[in-house]
Structure formats: structure tokens, C-alpha cells
Design a protein around this nucleic acid. Structure first.
Lengths: 172, 172
DNA sequence: GGATATTGCTCAGTATGCTGACGATCAGTA
DNA sequence: TACTGATCGTCAGCATACTGAGCAATATCC
């Protein structure tokens, strides 16, 4: 009791809010883990001789798996904001990895296709991407890594609708 | 066996890379969880009548807990890049929540102080911040939430040096 | 069929985050 | 003390992310 009292007084000289340690804040931990994940991804990919961001990679892989999809569908599949997708596709097109052409069925929409160069890039980059995923979880045992991913998936599923860019399955 | 074979052929017509589902990628899950965490934070804080980002909140709370610290130390404590801090402090100062003044001991450095208004804001905003942290973990049991935070902390500690902005304790 | 609502995409503006560079300053050493 | 290297803060430039707005086109409803 005495210890606690001293601790509180030490942290808070006045009777104000009890500011928790940043490491007790899931939001802070989320930011830190993301920060490390991006840095590891970029380092591994650059070591492999490529220049592709995590976001660009996810978009390209999803275009490959769903040829001809439009931008809104792509955004839904990987949970990007639709305004973000525009710039990401711009850069994939500019690098010659993807193509954007007007849809014949809906003149508002753009159909996305991966190019041969994009396919080649995806194939060659895969070991680096997989290596990055391993490094991100490097401090955890295999079982802990699985558990972390399970808990993240569960928390994400529960909060899916809370951001402007929820995950959406493709329409049939 | 048959099922698996069909599935693989369905996903991969040629003998190319096996593109994993995004939900098996810790990097993707990290981005999604962060995305939701930020959205929840902003929504809760705005509901409480304030306009403060997660990054600004963390900086302000850390300034309050370490009066007079310089920008590099602040960056280290919350693992921001030092180039990011400049803009964050700019906005805190512009909102009247913090002050930046030249250090008397080191003319390169700037000493940071929280203002009365900043203190007031921190105090009033705390319930919203705590509510946001709860909502982020809303899909998990209390035990699962604890476990998620433990695993994140462990993974982050192992990867601390891998980003340009590692966490650093303050010098004594 | 025509008014209305919705949807696909883009844009301007703002806030992280990062790379790489720079000037000013400090610290350590020859 | 002069030189060298490191450090503090800032800047330009780029890439996410988001808000809110708008245009064009499609869907829906009467």
C-alpha cells in the first residue's frame, strides 16, 4: 500500500489523470509493431534488389489473384481507403507492374491487370517477403507467433467496421 | 488431397509463387490493427470534443511526464523518427498545448514544456483515450487482450533496432 | 421514363513516417 | 587549441492514410 502510494505520488504530483505507460496502450503497441513491420519489409525487399512498399506488394498480389477487378473491390479486399488506392495504382502503373484500363461494363470503373513484369516481380520478390514476415515475429516462438496472429485476426474482425476502410469480400 | 490439389490449381495456374492469404501475413495484420486503432482513437477523442491525434497525445503525455526534455529524447521515449517530431511539436505548439524554447545548456536543443491548457486537455481527454483502448480490444476477452499486448511487447522488443526510430530510454 | 439515390473514381488538404541532406553546435582528441 | 566526429533540429521529397468534396455514370423507385 505504501509503495503504491509513493509510486502514484511520484508519477503524479497533483491529483490529475493517471497517465499509463505507453507500453500498456494497445494503440501504441500497434503503431510500434507496424513501424517495425514496414521497416523490415522494406529492408528485405531492397536487399533482394526491388523497390516495392508493403502496400504496393499487397495490391499487386491481389490484382494478380483477381484479374480485372476494379479499384473499389481491390480496396475492399485489402482494406485500403479508396482514396489511397488511386495513388498506389498510379505508382504500380508508373513502374510498369500493373495496367489500369476503363471497364467495358461500367464506364465509371477501371479494370486492373497485372503485367508480365509485375508477375515476374512478384515471383522474384516472394522469398524476401516471406523472410520479412519471419523476421517480424523473430522474438516469438512459432507457437507465440501463431497466437499473436490469431489474436490480431480476432481483434481486427471485431473492429472491421470501425475504420473508413473495412475489409470487404469480392462480390460474386 | 484432391481438394487441396484443386485449390492450388485454382489459385495458381502456373507453377509460380504460392501467394499466401493476406490474413496469414503478420505485416498485413499489423497494418489493419493499427488502422482500426487510429480510427477508434480519433472517434472517441472527437466524441469527447477534442481534436488530437494518437501521435500528438503520446507526445503531449510524455512531455508532461518529462518536463524540459529535448526533442530527440522525446522521440526516443515514444519511438518516433526525429524528423516526424518536428511537425508534431509544431502542431502542439500551434494549438497552445506545448511550448518549445531554446535550451540554455545546449544551444542546438529545444526544451519542451506542457502548458496549462495542455494539462487541462490531457486531464479531460483521458476517459476517451482509455475508452478507445478498450474498444480496440473489444473482440477479445480480458485474458486475450493481455496476451495480445504481451506478445506485441515481446515482438517489438526483439525488433526494436530494426526501424529508424527505436525506443530509447531517457539519459539520466 | 424521369427524378433520386448510389456508386466509382479523383482531387485538395492535412497528418504521420520515412530517406537523405544540411547548418549549427557540441564533445573528444591530437 | 585546432581538428574531427558526433549530435540536435530542420528541410525537401516521397508514400501512406484519412476527411470531405465533386464529377460522371449507374441503379432504383415512383
Amino acid at each position: 500500500m505504501l509503495t503504491i502510494s509513493i509510486l502514484v505520488n511520484d508519477l503524479e504530483t497533483s491529483a490529475e489523470t493517471s497517465v499509463k505507460d505507453n507500453n500498456d496502450m494497445p494503440g501504441h503497441l500497434a503503431r510500434r509493431f507496424q513501424q517495425i513491420a514496414v521497416a523490415v519489409f522494406l529492408a528485405e525487399v531492397e536487399d533482394a534488389g526491388f523497390d516495392l512498399t508493403p502496400v504496393q506488394y499487397a495490391a499487386l498480389a491481389t490484382i494478380k489473384a483477381n484479374p480485372g477487378l476494379d479499384q473499389v473491390t481491390l480496396a475492399g479486399l485489402i482494406a485500403y481507403d479508396r482514396t489511397t488506392i488511386t495513388g498506389v495504382i498510379d505508382r504500380l502503373v508508373q513502374k510498369g507492374l500493373a495496367e489500369r484500363r476503363p471497364s467495358s461494363r461500367d464506364r465509371r470503373a477501371r479494370e486492373l491487370q497485372i503485367t508480365d513484369e509485375g508477375r515476374r516481380t512478384l515471383r522474384k520478390i516472394t522469398p524476401a517477403v516471406e523472410s520479412a514476415q519471419r523476421i517480424m515475429l523473430g522474438g516469438l516462438s512459432a507457437k507465440e507467433g501463431e497466437e499473436l496472429m490469431r489474436l490480431l485476426r480476432k481483434a481486427i474482425a471485431a473492429g472491421n467496421e470501425l475504420s473508413r476502410a473495412p475489409q470487404r469480400d469480392a462480390q460474386i
